[in-house]
Amino acid sequence: MTKSLYKLSNRNLKNILTAVIVYLFSAPAYAQTESRNWNGKKCAVVLTYDDALNIHLDKVIPMLDSYQFKGTFYLIGSSPVVSERIPEWRAAAKTGHELGNHTLNHPCNGNLPGREFVTSETDLSKYTVARAVKETRITNSLLKAIDGKTERTFAYPCGDFTTNDTLYYNYLKNDFAAARGVSPGYLSMKGVDFSNVNSFFQNGSTAEQMIAQVEEAEKKSSFIVFLFHGVGGEHPLNIDLEEHRKLLEYLKKRKKDIWVATMVDVAKYIRENQNK
């Protein structure tokens, strides 16, 4: 009886020692694979909103504030929603939201399919490079008059990059921290192209779909930029306000692992850390 108990206790001891050894060797390996390169978190999320809509001031910014998140709002300089609501945009900027540059007149290439909304005055294919650059800088002057800031990011209207086969942003690189494009992609910090930062366009998306995109960014230790227009209406490209709220709710619950910040702050962070 004593002998069998002795054998049993020896076997248990060996099992315990094996478990301890496995833990000691596997725990450091796990810690090394868990990347927290994004301001101490696993990934970064940037929430961007295009075209300076009333709904952004009336619904989106209050909702973001309620979750203590800051967004990037790409304003069209000539929009009446800008000129008629300057005090509200100024107040949003003071609380940490970014006012980004979406040009003066939102020019798009009218020669492409589905561009019936483009007028002769807003047809990028008829612009000179000098005009595209000048109007963008005029918008920067307007935005500085609103928020007093000199650092901000740019967003290509309609995702169109060129006029007369020239990438006009080449002449604006020193004016911005980065330019947001419209092509999706999860990139490493070292792979970011500041002239065309990837983004995930949202139209009719559910919270479940958007959360899955965030989780993919986390899995890849990357970052994700969301591109919104209407949120609860006011634009043909739209997501439901409640789906937007559910996304924010998820991000709030995951705040220990997910860094939510403006485009300008994430762009500056990448620049400072991508060569480390």
Rank of each mutant, 00 (worst) to 15 (best):
M1K: 13
M1E: 13
Y6G: 01
L8I: 05
L8H: 09
N10W: 14
N10C: 15
L17P: 06
L17K: 14
V20K: 14
Y23T: 10
A27K: 04
A27G: 01
A27T: 04
Y30K: 14
Q32A: 05
Q32W: 09
T33A: 00
W38S: 02
G40T: 04
G40R: 03
A44G: 09
D51S: 07
A52C: 13
A52W: 05
L53T: 09
I55F: 01
V60L: 06
L64M: 14
Q68Y: 10
F69T: 08
G71R: 06
F73R: 07
L75S: 02
S78P: 12
P80W: 14
P80C: 12
V81N: 15
S83C: 02
R85T: 10
W89K: 01
R90V: 05
R90P: 00
R90L: 00
R90K: 15
G96R: 01
E98A: 02
L99K: 06
L99F: 10
T103D: 04
T103H: 07
H106A: 06
N109V: 12
N109G: 08
G110I: 06
G114W: 06
G114M: 09
R115H: 14
E116M: 03
T119N: 03
T119W: 03
T122V: 11
T122L: 04
D123R: 10
L124N: 00
K126Y: 07
T128I: 13
T139S: 09
N140E: 09
L143V: 05
I146D: 01
G148F: 12
R152T: 12
T153A: 04
P157A: 09
T163V: 11
N164P: 00
L167D: 13
Y168D: 03
Y168T: 04
L172V: 05
K173G: 02
N174M: 12
F176K: 05
A179T: 13
V182M: 15
P184L: 13
G185P: 11
S188H: 13
K190F: 08
K190S: 15
V192E: 03
V192M: 04
S195R: 11
V197Q: 05
N203Q: 12
G204H: 08
G204R: 07
M210V: 00
I211A: 02
E215T: 02
E216M: 11
K219F: 08
F223W: 09
V225I: 10
L227T: 12
V231Q: 04
V231S: 02
H235P: 08
H235E: 03
I239D: 08
D240P: 04
D240V: 12
L241W: 11
E243L: 03
H244F: 12
H244N: 12
K246L: 07
K252M: 00
K252G: 00
K256Y: 08
K256L: 10
A261W: 01
D265P: 11
V266W: 00
A267D: 05
A267N: 04
K268H: 03
K268W: 02
Y269D: 03
Y269M: 07
I270S: 01
R271V: 02
N275T: 03
N275C: 01
